[in-house]
Design a protein around this nucleic acid. Structure first.
Length: 217
DNA sequence: GGGCACGCTCGTCAGCGGCC
DNA sequence: GGCCGCTGACGAGCGTGCCC
């Protein structure tokens, strides 16, 4: 596993080779090519290997924050789903790349704020909100197992546990998707910044060429 | 207006990995 | 070993644009 940690962004090997839908194609390809009975185990292993889970978005960003100064960690917090959250773990963009909310920008590339605004859209910082873990009203916590006797009570307990699990998973899915969006935005921003940086370097190169090889009449 | 295709969002399931 | 969080995958529902 390797992480491309120059500046902010990073890629998982799987992500690099088979981004998004390509992964399914790869798995399908393996399934098609390894169709012999003996290859089932290998096939399963390959599938498992390919489908190996990437680190969570929170983990990715937190790892980066420990390696790259300027990237605050994503912290757990509790707030309402909408409205102004009391605490927002603001993932400020790293000084090496991103424009900040105060108009700071990459000192290496010396990008103009206007360029940044145009390239990245209005997205100077990333705000990661923690999942809402508070139970909604009406959710009754399960009674202690020791107090259950009749099959009916056991069934109700099982139902409550299932509802609770589904509710938690529902919220987790929402949070996961939100983090994924932030992650994608991050990558898109990095692409935009690098494009500007690349363009600037090309222009600089052309300028140096002109200086070093002046035209002779 | 109706049908269709496409994209997006959401809930759920399944499976993995971390923690105790 | 069980619990729990995270996330890919899948299907359903909905909105939108296009064509007839």
């Amino acid at each position: 596993m390797w992480w491309h940690q120059q500046n902010l962004c990073f890629r998982h090997p799987i992500e690099e080779d088979y981004s998004s839908g390509d992964l399914d194609k790869k798995v399908a390809t393996i399934a098609e090519t390894d169709d012999s009975a003996d290859s089932e185990v290998i096939d399963s292993h390959k599938r498992r290997e390919i489908l190996s889970r990437r680190p969570s978005y929170r983990k990715i960003l937190n790892e980066l924050s420990s390696d790259v100064p300027g990237i605050p960690k994503i912290e757990e917090e509790k707030s309402e789903e909408e409205g102004t959250p009391p605490n927002i773990a603001t993932m400020a963009v790293p000084t090496s790349i991103y424009q900040t909310s105060t108009g700071q920008y990459n000192e290496e590339t010396d990008l103009a704020p206007s360029h940044m605004a145009a390239a990245t859209g209005d997205m100077p910082t990333y705000q990661i909100r923690a999942p809402t873990t508070a139970l909604p009203q009406g959710v009754v916590m399960a009674a202690s197992p020791g107090s259950l006797h009749s099959p009916q009570q056991l069934a109700e307990e099982a139902t409550r546990k299932r509802e609770l699990r589904l509710m938690k998973n529902r919220e987790a899915a929402k949070e996961c998707r939100r983090r994924k969006k932030e992650y994608v935005k991050c990558l898109e921003s990095r692409v935009a910044v690098l494009e500007v940086q690349n363009k600037k370097l090309i222009e600089e190169l052309e300028t140096l060429k002109d200086i070093c090889s002046p035209k002779t009449d």
